[in-house]
């Protein structure tokens, strides 16, 4: 192998890229989580579930609004030139995933809002007139409710994909440059969302349903991960080196233990037993799943920045 020396020592760039800290993984996780929420709550709304439970169609969208805003705040914190943030909305750059993201978020908020209006629980009625009136009006037109459900699912799905595309669009980082990444982040978002619903939903049916769904998502996520890895291994040298960063390299331990084992396999087993009434439902599995979701984003973002096409230079 060549002996390469490079005089460059730019902050955040050398010896390997490290421009993104905790903010981006957190943003990606919360984005994915909210995407999952929207799909789940959209689904229940579509199924008219709001009639006997307020959780998925009222509380969940509200929760989403909070998480999404937190996520966007994390993103904001990452900007190096915060005063210019409004520039995002002075243009639409069709080739820029980040620009897409900015505008998608503009769609997400109204969708969530609409969902909250499908059914307003008693204690919250007669707070703001317009909301009540609007809610009544919607309920007089059931097809609107179905549309709200469907559109929440669609926008949610797009949001979930975007969190992956944001990274996979950056071709310069072989670990990210992978067509499976958006599927992975979307499923991971779904599994985390289902896990949380399972954990906090006030409605028995939803809890069980989401637990079942979660098992499906987790199983699928394992599959996607496998495809992700196989895909990388069968690509260019750079991609192989990149994926070894998480298979056997510096990020391997975290990946195998926290993402795969504790984040997917163990909770999957626990929940399988739970839904088959072998053991009681406990918060353990959902918490593990969500922790796994967060750590997955951290591993991918960090290892991705570390991955490179050019042979790295000696650093001293």
């Amino acid at each position: 192998m060549n002996e390469i020396w490079n005089s460059r020592t730019n902050p955040m760039i050398d010896p390997t890229l490290h421009i993104w800290g905790w903010e981006i993984p957190v943003y990606l996780f919360l984005g994915g989580l909210v995407a999952g929420f929207m799909i789940i709550s959209g689904y229940f709304t579509l199924k008219g579930h709001h009639r006997h439970s307020y959780f998925s169609s009222f509380y969940l969208p509200h929760l989403s609004l909070i998480f999404l805003s937190l996520g966007m705040f994390a993103l904001f914190l990452d900007l190096e030139y915060k005063l210019h943030v409004w520039r995002l909305y002075t243009t639409f750059e069709i080739t820029s995933p980040m620009s897409w993201g900015a505008w998608i978020l503009v769609l997400v908020y109204p969708m969530l809002l609409l969902n909250t209006l499908v059914s307003i629980p008693e204690p919250f009625r007669n707070r703001i007139r317009v909301f009540d009136r609007f809610s009544d009006w919607i309920n007089r037109h059931p097809y609107l409710i179905k549309n709200i459900g469907i559109w929440n699912m669609i926008v949610g799905a797009v949001l979930g994909m975007y969190t992956g595309v944001l990274l996979s669009g950056l071709a310069a980082r072989p670990l990210w440059n992978n067509s499976m990444l958006w599927v992975l982040f979307l499923t991971s978002g779904l599994s985390s969302a289902a896990a949380l619903v399972h954990l906090i939903s006030t409605d028995k049916v939803e809890r069980v349903a989401s637990a079942r769904a979660d098992n499906a998502f987790l199983t699928f996520e394992l599959l996607v991960l496998a495809l992700f890895i196989v895909g990388m291994l069968s690509s260019a040298r750079a991609q192989q080196e990149a994926v070894f960063l998480i298979l056997s390299g510096p990020y391997a331990a975290v990946f195998w233990i926290f993402v795969v084992l504790l984040g997917i396999v163990i909770p999957l087993i626990i929940q399988l037993l739970a839904v088959n009434h072998k053991i009681r439902h406990t918060p353990v599995a959902p918490i593990l799943v969500m922790a796994g979701g967060v750590i997955l984003r951290f591993v991918i973002v960090y290892a991705g920045q570390y991955s490179h096409w050019a042979q790295p230079a000696m650093s001293f």
Partner: peptide
Amino acid sequence: CIGCKACVASCPYD
């Protein structure tokens, strides 16, 4: 520029 660093990450030459 908002300093989002997407371009920094996107440059294969750093």
